[in-house]
Simulated assay, not measured.
Amino acid sequence: MPILDSSYHSPLIFRSAHLSTIYAALLRKVDFRISKRERLELSDGDFLDLDWCYPLNKNTEKLLIVTHGLAGNAQRPYMLGMAKSFTEKGWDVALMNFRSCSGELNRLYRSYNAGATEDLEEVVTHALKKNKYRHISLAGFSLGGNLLLKYLGERNTVPTEVKSAMAVSVPCDLGASLKELNKNHNFLYSRRFLKNLKEQLYERHLAFPGEIDKNDIASCNSLLAVDELYTSKAHGYKDAAEYYKKCSCLQFLPHIKIPTLLINAENDSFLSPNSYPVKTAKNSSFLYLEIPKYGGHVGFIQKGEKYYHEKRALEFIIDRSQ
């Protein structure tokens, strides 16, 4: 598909990548509550929690499934903003909490990672059995966007009910984007992620003292170190490099077979050049790529309550659901 021209016009103050990223993540308030939480028992004996959001008219055949970013959860403003936008249009919305991200440690030593598409697959299967939806669309943010795109591109087919998808601020090359995140101008973000992930690892040490040592956790001074110590090993990869190589969605993008929109801001300080797959999009019949000049990382602020990526999700997904 041709590269899409972006109509995003950032307010002047939010042309700063850092200001838009921080405001959207920490200061945005979304007046919206989930309808109910459901615990999904997974086939390997573990669980994850789904936060369901319903429109006033509950008799809908359309569902949006949304995935969050690293160290996130379903209650983040970007998740609630997307849910509110779609329930207002009469859709059901299922917000995924990845394993161990809903406030309770999961049962197994493993948790979640950028390539754990088996969990998304189980959510889709469960949704189809639960309500027999005729139309399912997917939306993902950052790490969850990478997972979503990998899910769509790594398998020969997805259920016919899965009609379209959108991914926002996606590190399509995990290893290269980690190098960007470790640069000095991203110090505050990388420190925040590291602090959150180490806190989770200390909890995991208490539950699995024979699997991970608290002194090894304490010595982790970077996100790479966390992935070397835990993420890669716990999920069956030799090391962090193999994890990044096998789980980066970039290699799967040419194989996507449903209409999919990827929005990555040009000034997103988390992303490497490989996260702007212009050539792949031009050669694809299904991948649409939009590169707004501004927006930072999931910071597409505009006048009014809705953010730009929510407006674009409504346009792109609902147009394909008629």
Results as ranks from 00 to 15, higher is better:
26 L>P: 09
66 V>D: 06
97 N>C: 03
241 A>N: 01
111 S>I: 04
59 N>V: 07
9 H>W: 10
250 L>G: 04
301 I>N: 12
1 M>A: 12
39 R>T: 14
20 S>V: 04
304 G>K: 10
247 C>W: 02
203 E>Y: 15
40 L>Y: 13
65 I>N: 00
209 P>D: 09
134 R>G: 05
242 E>G: 07
262 L>P: 05
216 D>T: 08
40 L>K: 13
204 R>M: 05
96 M>Y: 02
150 K>F: 09
122 E>Y: 15
121 E>I: 10
240 A>H: 04
291 I>D: 00
23 Y>I: 02
199 E>D: 13
34 I>R: 11
194 L>T: 08
69 G>W: 10
61 E>H: 15
85 S>H: 01
315 E>H: 11
221 N>T: 10
285 S>A: 15
84 K>F: 11
228 E>Q: 08
269 S>Q: 08
70 L>S: 09
213 D>L: 10
225 A>D: 14
226 V>G: 06
232 S>V: 07
254 P>A: 04
129 K>M: 14
208 F>C: 05
2 P>A: 06
97 N>W: 03
81 G>D: 07
49 D>W: 15
133 Y>F: 07
26 L>S: 07
235 H>F: 06
272 S>T: 06
196 N>R: 15
254 P>R: 06
270 F>H: 09
258 I>V: 07
264 N>D: 00
201 L>Q: 06
85 S>T: 12
107 R>P: 01
237 Y>H: 05
144 G>H: 14
314 L>Q: 01
18 H>N: 01
278 V>Q: 15
216 D>L: 12
82 M>I: 12
175 G>P: 00
313 A>I: 04
161 E>I: 01
99 R>I: 08
4 L>K: 08
262 L>R: 02
100 S>T: 08
151 Y>K: 06
235 H>K: 02
184 N>P: 07
56 L>H: 13
304 G>N: 06
97 N>P: 00
209 P>M: 03
65 I>R: 04
156 N>C: 13
223 L>H: 07
219 S>E: 12
186 N>G: 07
22 I>H: 03
261 L>K: 03
322 Q>T: 13
241 A>L: 10
170 V>M: 05
101 C>Y: 04
248 S>Y: 11
163 K>W: 02
234 A>V: 01
58 K>Q: 15
224 L>Q: 13
43 S>L: 14
168 V>R: 05
273 P>G: 02
178 L>A: 14
83 A>C: 11
56 L>Y: 11
250 L>T: 09
192 R>W: 14
17 A>V: 02
129 K>L: 15
180 E>D: 03
158 V>I: 14
178 L>F: 04
30 V>N: 10
171 P>F: 01
77 P>M: 08
276 Y>R: 05
77 P>R: 10
214 K>M: 13
306 K>P: 03
